[in-house]
Design a protein around this nucleic acid. Structure first.
Lengths: 130, 130
DNA sequence: GGTTGACTTCGAGTGCGCTCGAAGGCGCAC
DNA sequence: GTGCGCCTTCGAGCGCACTCGAAGTCAACC
């Protein structure tokens, strides 16, 4: 962690630690256009992650871990990068994703219930056998 | 659909329709050992899916769509195929899976909440702009 | 008996999302 | 000055879960 002109910045290893991603994944995301722009560099050429960077990366991981494909995260990043004026498109993308997730959650819950039922059956059986 | 000696059996296309899988996936699952045993054949060599087959395939899809990897579904199928005596192992496998899913559901819900928040922000912004 | 269409096997191909490794640079401790 | 550790780029490789296509069989219908 380094502090310059009142700003805290993280090395890639620290950013990885902070976000739960690997350093490889962080570079990959940057290459692949998932970040808003190229991460700043120290004079050594090493990446320096700002708080803004981390905030955005956390948003990316939220989208990813709710199942949004990389391709779509990139689309979203492209829109944000393009600046003001496309809020409606961003909204549409997020809403479509939200609706998908909202549909899946109860489905998964239902499947889980069925699995629990199976577990109950086995528990009763193994208890009886004991 | 065909009926022989009081038993309803389905062609692979019908089984695909009934389970939401593709015919390709059904053959793949069978090849890969996810089914309990080889599906019966008509005299023509065509697969004939019984109600039992469909029941098992539905269990497989429940496991799959809650995120269990193919490899693990195969392990479970192997145990069931081995017959009585390993119920404890099956139970262990299912419980481990259940616990994983139980942990993920609220996490996804939390991420979803954060995304909803973002959506609210955009909605307020696009309304204001209008 | 010819055509149609649903099926068969087999192996190769695809898309996704990383993951890994090689080869090299930079700065600091000893 | 030399080792060490952390970083860099680049491109190849991998695991997963199908998906696809070619080539052939079979039964039924016209």
């Amino acid at each position: 962690m380094s502090v310059v002109t009142d700003r805290v910045t993280l090395s890639i290893a620290e950013a990885a630690e902070a976000t739960g991603l690997t350093t490889h994944a962080l570079r990959y995301y940057e290459r692949d256009g998932l970040l808003l722009d190229a991460v700043d560099r120290a004079s050594s050429g090493h990446r320096r992650y700002s708080e803004d960077d981390l905030g955005w990366i956390r948003m990316v991981t939220r989208l990813r871990s709710t199942g949004m494909p990389i391709r779509e995260v990139r689309q979203y990043a492209d829109l944000v990068r393009a600046g003001d004026g496309n809020e409606a498109e961003r909204l549409q993308l997020l809403v479509a994703h939200r609706d998908r997730v909202r549909q899946q959650l109860p489905e998964v819950a239902t499947h889980l219930d069925a699995i629990e039922l199976k577990i109950d059956l086995y528990e009763r059986r193994t208890c009886t056998n004991a």
